[in-house]
Structure formats: C-alpha cells, structure tokens
Amino acid sequence: MSVDSVFVHKMWNDHELSKMVTGGVPFAMLSDGGGRVGSVYGVYDPDAGVEMRGRFLIDPDGVIQGYEVLTPPVGRNVGETFRQIQAFQLIRDSKGTEATPSGWKPGKITLKPGPDLVGKVWEVWKTSMAFD
C-alpha cells in the first residue's frame, strides 16, 4: 500500500516488478491516496506526503500480532517476516501452550511455559541458539 494511484501501481508492476517476479506481483497493490489508511496505522508522514515502510502481521481473527516500521532508505528482510509468521502460527496451533524462544525458527525447540520451567530455561535453551 502506498499513496500512488492504481494506475501508477499498474505501470510499476508491468514495467519493472514483472521483470523481477515472473507473472508480476501476485497480491493486491493497494492505493491509499491522502494517506487516510496509513494515518490510522501510524505510518503516514503528512510532511513528506508518503508512508513509511510499515509491515503489519494480521492473524485470521483480524488481530495485529506484530509490526515493524522503517524509514524509507532501508529495505525489509522478508525472511524474518516469514519466520515471525511461522512462529505465530505455531503459537496459535498450540493454543498458547508453547512459546518460541529468541532465535527460534522451524525445527528448533519451543518452550512450554509453566511452574516447572521457572528458573530452568538455562537448562533447555542456550544463548548460542539465538544466533545459529
């Protein structure tokens, strides 16, 4: 979503993005003229007249589970977005009985918070696991 019109979205897709992604962008390129939606999400800068690089993860109930906002010159890390979605999906499937520790990615251990785990995280989770 940006403040550009759908006509400009079409031009950008047809003349540039479709040369990066076979078949072009497969999802909706949303237009937010005036930044009305961006204002509600807190990412519209009225002085610059554009929106910041805001990324919101919204679950199937319409609840925001996470967001990240960057100023324009720094691009996002899509891999981290996917990792977060996978973590939130796991938590949702476990109905909140599990938690994903720092550095978690699919296949790594999760934690099961409860009285037995208090003060014992150091036994099952090592700081090196935050970096591998």
Binding site: S2, V3, P26, A28, L57, I58, P60, G62, R76
Partner: peptide, 27 residues
C-alpha cells in the same frame, strides 16, 4: 488496488480467516 491485471476494490475484513501481511512503502 491493482491485482493481476484488474482494478479492484479490496477490503481488509474480506481476508478474515487468513493471515495477512499488510505492507506500506513510500512510493
């Protein structure tokens, strides 16, 4: 929105039941 060759009117709540990644960008 522009979606796969068509101009459409999208609504966030139409996507209830699915995970949604909503991205804003400067232009």
């Amino acid at each position: 929105a522009y979606l796969k060759g068509k101009f459409v009117q999208a609504k966030l709540s139409d996507y209830l039941g699915k995970w949604v990644v909503l991205c804003f960008y400067p232009g």
